[in-house]
Write a protein that binds this DNA or RNA. Structure first.
Lengths: 153, 153
DNA sequence: AGTGAAAGAACGAAAAC
DNA sequence: GTTTTCGTTCTTTCACT
């Protein structure tokens, strides 16, 4: 699907605030409410818009400790990778997991309450996964930037 | 603010889909629509709910290449850190930036179109920032898990 | 592609239990 | 805490350009 300048602007607004009314958007874009409505529906149908989510203040729900875990597997057959990835998907503490290039195979973003929680996560969950070799963890000292809004064209 | 079991469940639903109506939520939670409405407003007032955002399919808008950049600064005075962090915040390609413990000082999640775009980002943006020493980049081979929904209590 | 009008649904506030 | 009510606002469809 080809996006024009209005779609791009519309998506920029929607990425920042999903709860704006079509009326508000229509005045920002100098369009009718119906035109905005139809554009959004088309973007949803084409899968450009994936979903609408609520973001929470993680510290206020008791999750103030973010850790990035670099993981090396012992073996790298397709079977082992698939097994590891399926298991990682079941872990609530793991918000993100990417198979990456470089010295380590996977990079995980892990969110926990505190160091004790992290320790328990490492001991009882992560290192018990099949085929996990060495791990290297970086603790977050400060969140400098954290956005879900992407900029394109 | 103390969250009860209903708040926790409500937040779980809202994190997955911000566009559900209060009516739908009320039937899932066995509550009245008004009660759901009041709970959500309270969670917003208390900052537990940060915001409502639209997530896009990054590949469909031409951003198919995610890179994690580990960065070491040359100097670590408060002044240098603050300057670096302010500059990083202005870079559209940088979705996330965390000051972390370990060998490298910062971990950046960078989203670009392709390798050419990444090269231009590195050469014209990242490495031109003041006080950036060595960098080490990991390219994403595969996205295993990527969620904004956090699980607590 | 776009607009305007109209029906239906949801919101938001107030009342009373 | 709940239900009901009511005016307002938004969503969604439709006819038309």
């Amino acid at each position: 699907m080809q996006l024009d300048a209005i779609d791009t602007l519309l998506l920029r607004y929607l990425q920042i605030d999903a709860k704006q009314t079509n009326k508000e958007l229509s005045s920002k874009l100098n369009l009718s409410v119906t035109a905005v409505y139809e554009r959004i529906k088309k973007l949803e149908r084409n899968g450009i818009i994936k979903n609408y989510v609520t973001l929470l203040n993680s510290e206020k729900v008791g999750l103030g400790f973010m850790v990035f875990c670099h993981i090396k597997l012992i073996q790298h057959s397709k079977e082992h990778l698939t097994k590891f990835e399926a298991e990682v998907n079941t872990l609530d503490e793991v918000l993100e997991c990417f198979h990456v290039s470089g010295e380590y195979d996977y990079l995980l973003k892990v969110m926990v309450r505190d160091m004790a929680h992290f320790r328990s996560f490492m001991v009882t969950k992560l290192t018990t996964l099949q085929h996990v070799g060495s791990t290297q963890s970086s603790f977050t000292i400060n969140e400098v930037k954290n956005t879900t809004a992407i900029t394109f064209s």
